[in-house]
Amino acid sequence: MLEKTMRINYLVDFYQSLLTPKQYDYMRLYYDEDLSLVEIADLLDVSRQAVYDNLKRTEMILEDYEEKLKLYDKFLKRAELIEQLEAEIDQKEKHEKINDIIVQLKDLS
């Protein structure tokens, strides 16, 4: 569950400008502020089912954006390459490996 929450938080960060204000508010209240469905429903004066439906629909929209644009995937790959680069820097005799990683990083931009 924590992994899903972290993924959704990143997707909201990457794609928030593509969400409606209502979609963003629901996601922020549930994932950032950790409010329950009932608390959000009370706060926004809607049913619990409306909150649930909006969250699920917005999650699907975010996953669709990610499938097409791959911003989160590229972010993870960049982070992994940076970790590899940092590990290789400690071993200065491996300049070729460092150059390969740098090229991969540039290709992700």
Rank of each mutant, 00 (worst) to 15 (best):
D32I: 01
K22Q: 05
E63K: 01
V46W: 01
D25M: 11
L69S: 01
E59Q: 14
K56V: 08
I101A: 10
S17E: 15
D42Y: 08
K22Y: 15
Q104N: 14
Q16M: 04
L43M: 13
K94H: 14
Y72F: 15
M1R: 05
D90A: 07
E39K: 11
V46G: 02
Y10P: 01
S17H: 14
L19Y: 04
Y24H: 11
D53W: 05
R57V: 03
F75N: 01
V103I: 15
P21Y: 09
I101H: 08
P21F: 04
M1G: 09
T5K: 14
Y26S: 02
L55E: 04
V12S: 04
E67P: 00
V103F: 09
Y72V: 03
S17I: 06
L105G: 13
Q91G: 02
L43I: 06
Q23P: 01
S17A: 07
L105M: 13
K106F: 07
Y10Q: 12
D64Q: 07
S17P: 00
D64A: 04
R57N: 06
I40D: 05
M60L: 11
R78C: 07
I89C: 03
R48P: 02
D25Q: 12
L44F: 05
Y65L: 14
F75H: 14
M6D: 15
L18D: 12
E33V: 00
E83Q: 11
R7A: 13
I89K: 12
Q84T: 05
D90T: 09
S17L: 10
M27N: 08
A50Q: 15
K70P: 00
K92T: 12
I61D: 14
E3D: 09
D34F: 03
P21N: 05
L37R: 10
E59P: 07
T20D: 01
V103T: 12
P21A: 06
M27G: 10
R78S: 10
D32L: 06
L2C: 00
E63T: 00
L44Y: 13
Y15D: 01
D107S: 10
H95D: 11
Y52S: 10
P21E: 05
I82F: 01
